[in-house]
Design a binder for these strands. Structure first.
Length: 915
RNA sequence: GGGUCCGUAGCUCAGUUGGUUAGAGCGCAUCGCUUAUAACGGUGUGGUCGUAGGUUCGAGUCCUACCGGACCUACCA
C-alpha cells in the first residue's frame, strides 16, 4: 500500500536528450537575444579580443579549448553585470589557403595567369576561406560560444584589407620599412619566403660528406701542403662556398691520413675516424689562431669555381663535424652575417624555384637537391671526399607542402623593429601575464627578434601597395602617394593592384606628365599574414570602437612568439602602448600518456564527435576542470570522470527543482532558520569566496571541483539526505522554510554553473521559469549573515557524533541485525543533553519535525541529523563513545519508515499528515 | 643542442615560509535502501610524492644530475 508523500516532481531529466537540447538552446538564445541583452548590462564593457583562428579546416580540439575558455570568461563577466563585446574573427589570407586552392585548380588542369586571372584566384581563396568560416562558426556555436557573430571580422573583408594596408603604410611613413637582402627560409615548392610560423622541423635523411680544401697560402710553413676538412649535410651549397670558418681558440691538429696531411679539430678526430674508417696519425697540435690569414682554393677550382676561399674565425663552431665550417653567405644566417662582416660575395646562384642560374658551371638549370649528387661526383673525381655518411637530422620543411626548405638570399621588405622593441619593453609591466612565465617566453622571443620580413611572393593577401625606385630601393612617399594608393584600392578593389593600368593610374596622380617613371617599380608582394592578424588591435579594437586596450587576450601558449608578438609590436609603432591588460595562455591537448595529438599517431579526438556523443557541456567541463596553464589530457578515464560530474550537477539541480515544486515561494528570514540550514548557507558563502577568487585568476577548475564536492558531500550525503524526511513526510506547511532554503541554494548553484554548462543549466532553468534565459541573470551577492564561521564548530561536533554512531551502525549492519539507519535506536547519557544544548545554541525552532516520542527538542534534532528512528537518554552510559546503538524493537511506519512502539497502521504523525 | 614549463593514489587536483603516520572528490570494491530509483546511503581499497644523489635533526617541499612529456628556439654547416 502506498501513502501520499511529497517526493520530488519535475520534468528535468537526469540524462537529457543533449542533441535535442543543443538545438533548442541555440534557438532559445537567439529568440531571447541573450547576447544582445548583455549590452544592456550596467557595468563597464568587458572586451576579450579574439585572436583569429585560420580558416582552412574544421575546428580541432585546440580551437575548442580556446573558445570554451574565452566563452566561460565572457559568460562569467556578463553575469557579473558587465557589457560584453566579443567579436569573433578569422585569419583568411596566406599560404595554406592559397596552396589548397592551387591544388584544386591543378586537379582541373588549370594554371594561374593562363586559365585564371589573379582576381578569379583571389575570389576562389575567399570562397574557400568563407566555407571554413561558416563551418567553424557553426561548430563554435555548438560549443556554446556566445558572440557577436553577425559582426565577426576577417582579414579578407574589404574594410579590413583597407585598414590593414593603411596600418602598414603608417610604418612606411614612419620610415620603418626598408628593402633588404637577406638569406631567408625559402620554399622552392611554393616559390616564396616563409614566416617562422610556417616552418615545420621534421627529421630528414641527408648525405653528409667530409670535404678537403687545399691550402694555397699560409703564413705558417708547416701548413703548406696540408688540407682543411669541412663537413656538410648540404653538398649543393658548396657551389656557393666563399669561405671556411674556424674557432681561433679551439685546439686543432695536423694529422696524416694515407700520406696526406690534413687539419682537424683535435677533439673531433675520433668522430672523424669512425665516419671515415681511416686511420689518423696526429702529427702536431696547436690552437686555431695559427690558421689566421690562411687561404684555400675551392675543390672545384678547375671547373669554374676559381675564387679563393679564405679562413675566417668565428664563434659558432660546434661539437659536430670537423671544427671547420663551410661558409655559403647566400644560404645561411650565420654565413650571411660572417660574409657581410668580411665583405664576402653574397651569392645569388639559385632562383625562386630552387634552380641554379646561368652563372653556375656544372649545375646550371639543375634543382638544388639534385645538385647534391653532382657535387659529390665531382668531388670524388677530384679526390676531395674523405667520408660519406648518412645522417638523420631535424631540418626545416614547409608547413604546407611538407617539402624541405632552403636558405636563399633574396630582396625582401623588412620592418625595422628596433624602436618597436624599445617601446614594447616599456609596457611589459603594464600587462598581467597568466601564467607569469608567459612574460618570460614573450621577452625571450622579443629579445631575439630580428627585423621583420613582411613581404611574401604570393597573391592571397594584402598587397604592400608601394612603389619604389629600383636603383636606390627607396619607397616613393612624395605627394601623398600612399594615401592616394589606399584611396585607389578602396575605390577599385584590392585586386585592382594587379591590373595593368594601376601603376599608370596612381603614378599619374603623383608625378607630372612628362616625369620619367621607368625607374619606379611596383611591388607585387603581399603582406605577411602575421601583420594582418597583428593589426586586429587597430582595425577591430580601435577603428570599430570596440574598446582599446582590450581586457584580455587569451590564446595557446605558442602565440607568445606569434600573435601576441605581432600585436604588441604593431601597437608600439608610435609610442609604448599595450593592446591588452591581461595576456593569458593555455596549453595543448595531449593524449592519455601525455603525448601530443597527431594524425599519424592516430590519437586525435574531434570536438564535434564529443559534442555529438556526449553533448557540449561535457566537452566544456573537461576543458574547465583541468589546469589549463599546462597540457590538457584526454583519456576515456577523464571522459568518464566528466560524465559523472555532469550527472552529479544535473541530479542536484533535479532534486532541487523537484522539491521546489511544492514551495509556496515565500522567503524565510535567516534568523529563523535551524542550524543545519545556516550551515548550508555558510557553505554557499565559502563557495562564493572561491568563485570571486577564480575570477581574479581566470582559473575555474578549483571552483568547479568545489561545486562538485558541495553537491556530493554537503548536499547529497548530508543536507538532502537529512531533510528528506521533512520534505517528503511532514506537512507542506512545515517544510516551507526548508524549501525556501532549497531555493536559495538553487539560485546560487544554477547561476554559478551557467557559465560552465550553459546548455544543461538552461534546460533546468526552463523547468523553473519559462520567461527568461538563465544567461541573462546576474550573480547574487552573498548576504553577510551567511558567512557564519561559528556554525562550523556546530557542524564539526554533529559530524563527530555522526561518525561515532555510524561506525556502530555499520557493525550492526554487517551482523545483519539492521539494514538501514531507520532501524536504529540510540541511547546516550542524559548529561549529554547539556552539550547538545551548547551545540544547538541559537538554533531556531523553525520547521522541526513533529517528534511525538521525543519531548526534547535538541534530542529530536540529533535524531533527525542521524536519520534514525529514536534517540533516548539513560544515566547508565558514561560517555558518548559508549552510546548504545541497537535495533529498534517497535514496528515500522510504512509511510515515514521510522519505528515506533505504539503504532496502528501509520505512526501518529503520518496519521495526522495524511488525514 | 638551447630556453620555459610540467611530473603527488586509476582520474582530476590540494599540500602554507622544509616539521607528526602525505589529503580531498570522483572512480573502483563491497554492503544496504527500494519514498531523488538507469538515482540514493554506509563501509572499505588506492601513493617508494618521475629516478638517483646531496643539504638538513628532519625533504613531496631546497640544491644537483638524470628520465619522461609539452611548447618555443636552432639549417648539427
Amino acid at each position: 500500500m502506498s501513502y501520499e508523500v511529497y517526493t520530488p516532481k519535475t520534468n528535468f531529466k537526469l540524462r537529457g536528450d543533449h542533441s535535442y537540447n543543443l538545438s533548442w538552446c541555440l534557438l532559445w538564445w537567439a529568440k531571447e537575444k541573450v547576447y544582445e541583452k548583455w549590452q544592456n548590462n550596467a557595468k563597464s564593457t568587458f572586451v576579450l579580443h579574439d585572436g583569429p583562428p585560420y580558416a582552412n579546416g574544421a575546428p580541432h580540439i585546440g580551437h575548442a579549448v580556446n573558445k570554451i575558455l574565452k566563452d566561460t570568461i565572457n559568460r562569467t563577466m556578463a553575469m557579473l553585470g558587465h557589457k560584453i563585446n566579443y567579436i569573433p574573427g578569422w585569419d583568411t589570407n596566406g599560404l595554406p589557403i592559397e596552396t589548397q586552392v592551387e591544388k584544386e585548380f591543378k586537379i582541373k588542369g588549370m594554371k594561374l595567369h593562363r586559365d585564371i586571372s589573379i582576381t578569379e584566384f583571389r575570389n576562389e581563396c575567399a570562397k574557400f576561406a568563407q566555407k571554413w568560416i561558416d563551418i567553424q562558426l557553426q561548430e563554435f556555436q555548438k560549443m556554446g560560444v556566445m558572440a557577436d557573430y553577425k559582426n565577426h571580422y576577417t582579414t579578407m573583408s574589404k574594410r579590413s584589407q583597407n585598414d590593414i594596408l593603411a596600418e602598414f603604410h603608417k610604418f612606411v611613413n614612419k620610415g620603418l620599412v626598408y628593402r633588404g637582402f637577406k638569406p631567408i627560409m625559402w620554399s622552392c615548392e611554393e616559390k616564396t619566403s616563409l614566416a617562422n610560423a610556417e616552418v615545420e622541423y621534421k627529421d630528414k635523411k641527408s648525405i653528409a660528406i667530409d670535404v678537403a680544401f687545399c691550402i694555397t697560402s699560409t703564413k705558417n710553413k708547416k701548413l703548406n701542403d696540408a688540407k682543411i676538412v669541412i663537413w656538410t649535410t648540404t653538398p649543393w651549397t658548396l657551389f656557393a662556398n666563399r669561405a671556411i670558418a674556424y674557432d681561433q681558440n679551439l685546439q686543432y691538429s695536423l694529422v696524416k691520413i694515407e700520406n696526406q696531411k690534413y687539419i682537424l679539430a683535435t677533439n673531433l678526430i675520433e668522430n672523424f675516424q669512425q665516419r671515415s674508417e681511416k686511420s689518423v696519425q696526429i702529427l702536431e697540435t696547436f690552437t686555431g689562431d695559427i690558421l689566421n690569414e690562411t687561404i684555400c682554393k675551392h675543390p672545384l677550382h678547375d671547373l669554374g669555381y676559381n675564387h679563393s676561399v679564405p679562413l675566417i674565425s668565428c664563434d659558432f663552431v660546434t661539437e659536430q663535424g670537423t671544427g671547420f665550417i663551410h661558409i655559403a653567405p647566400g644560404h645561411g644566417e650565420d654565413d650571411f652575417n660572417l660574409g657581410v662582416k668580411h665583405n664576402l660575395e653574397i651569392t645569388q646562384l639559385v632562383d625562386e624555384k630552387g634552380i641554379f642560374t646561368s652563372n653556375t658551371p656544372l649545375v646550371e638549370g639543375k634543382f638544388v637537391h639534385d645538385a647534391n649528387q653532382i657535387m659529390i661526383n665531382e668531388l670524388y673525381k677530384n679526390n676531395c671526399i674523405l667520408a660519406q655518411t648518412k645522417i638523420t637530422h631535424s631540418y626545416p620543411h614547409s608547413w604546407r607542402s611538407g617539402m624541405p626548405l632552403i636558405f636563399r638570399a633574396t630582396p625582401q621588405w623588412f620592418i625595422s623593429v628596433k624602436s618597436l622593441k624599445e617601446n614594447a619593453y616599456k609596457i611589459l609591466d603594464d600587462i598581467k601575464w597568466i601564467p607569469e612565465s608567459g612574460r618570460l617566453k614573450f621577452e625571450d622571443t622579443l629579445e631575439s627578434k630580428p627585423d621583420w620580413c613582411i613581404s611574401r611572393q604570393r597573391i592571397c593577401g594584402i598587397p604592400l601597395g608601394i612603389f619604389f625606385d629600383c636603383e636606390t630601393n627607396e619607397i616613393i612617399v612624395k605627394n601623398d602617394i600612399l594615401q592616394k594608393t589606399q584611396k585607389y584600392l578602396d575605390e577599385n578593389g584590392m585586386e585592382s593592384w594587379w591590373q595593368d593600368d594601376t601603376k599608370h593610374n596612381i603614378l599619374s596622380q603623383v608625378f607630372e606628365k612628362n616625369y620619367d617613371t621607368s625607374n619606379i617599380k611596383q611591388s607585387f608582394e603581399i603582406l605577411d599574414v602575421w601583420f594582418d592578424s597583428g593589426a586586429t588591435q587597430a582595425f577591430v579594437l580601435q577603428n570599430r570602437n570596440i574598446g582599446f586596450p582590450a581586457n584580455v587576450y587569451l590564446e595557446g601558449m605558442d602565440q607568445h612568439r606569434a600573435w601576441f608578438q605581432s600585436s604588441i609590436l604593431q601597437a608600439c609603432m608610435k609610442k609604448p602602448q599595450t593592446p591588452c591588460k591581461i595576456i593569458m595562455s593555455h596549453g595543448f591537448v595531449v593524449d592519455k600518456k601525455g603525448y601530443k595529438m597527431s594524425k599519424s599517431q592516430g590519437n586525435v579526438i574531434s570536438p564535434s564527435e564529443i559534442i555529438e556523443k556526449h553533448g557540449p557541456d561535457v566537452l566544456r567541463l573537461w576543458v574547465l576542470t583541468q589546469n589549463y596553464e599546462n597540457n590538457l589530457r584526454w583519456s576515456t578515464e577523464q571522459l568518464n570522470r566528466v560524465l559523472d560530474m555532469e550527472k552529479r550537477f544535473r541530479n542536484t539541480l533535479r532534486f532541487l527543482l523537484g522539491n521546489l515544486h511544492y514551495w509556496n515561494k515565500k522567503e524565510v528570514d535567516y534568523k529563523l532558520m535551524p542550524n543545519l540550514e545556516k550551515w548550508i548557507l555558510h557553505r554557499l558563502a565559502q563557495l562564493n569566496k572561491l568563485h570571486l577568487q577564480s575570477l581574479k585568476e581566470l582559473q575555474f577548475a578549483n571552483f568547479i571541483k568545489a561545486l562538485s564536492e558541495f553537491c556530493s558531500v554537503d548536499l547529497s550525503t548530508l543536507y538532502f539526505d537529512i531533510r528528506k524526511e521533512l520534505l517528503y513526510c511532514d506537512t507542506l506547511e512545515k517544510s516551507q522554510s526548508t524549501r525556501a532554503c532549497l531555493f536559495i541554494i538553487w539560485s546560487y548553484l544554477i547561476r554559478w554553473l551557467a557559465a560552465f554548462m550553459p546548455f544543461g543549466t538552461e534546460e533546468a532553468f526552463y523547468c523553473y521559469d519559462q520567461t527568461q534565459s538563465i544567461h541573462n541573470l546576474h550573480y547574487i551577492e552573498i548576504s553577510n549573515e551567511y558567512d557564519n564561521t561559528k556554525i562550523e564548530s556546530y557542524m564539526q561536533k554533529m559530524l563527530d557524533l555522526r561518525n561515532i554512531a555510524y561506525q556502530k551502525i555499520e557493525k550492526l549492519r554487517q551482523s545483519k541485525i539492521v539494514t538501514s539507519t531507520h532501524d536504529v535506536k540510540i541511547t546516550i547519557n542524559s548529561t549529554f543533553i547539556d552539550s547538545l544544548n551548547e551545540i544547538f545554541e541559537n538554533s531556531s525552532t523553525n520547521n522541526i519535525i513533529d517528534d511525538n516520542n521525543d519531548n526534547d527538542l535538541h534530542l529530536s534534532r540529533l535524531r533527525e541529523f542521524l536519520i534514525i528512528s529514536e534517540i533516548t537518554t539513560s544515566d547508565d552510559i558514561k560517555c558518548m563513545q559508549n552510546m548504545i546503538v541497537e535495533k529498534h524493537t517497535g514496528t515500522r511506519c510504512p509511510r515515514c519508515k521510522r519505528y515506533f512502539h505504539d503504532i496502528k497502521i501509520l505512526c501518529a504523525r503520518c496519521e495526522k499528515n495524511t488525514s
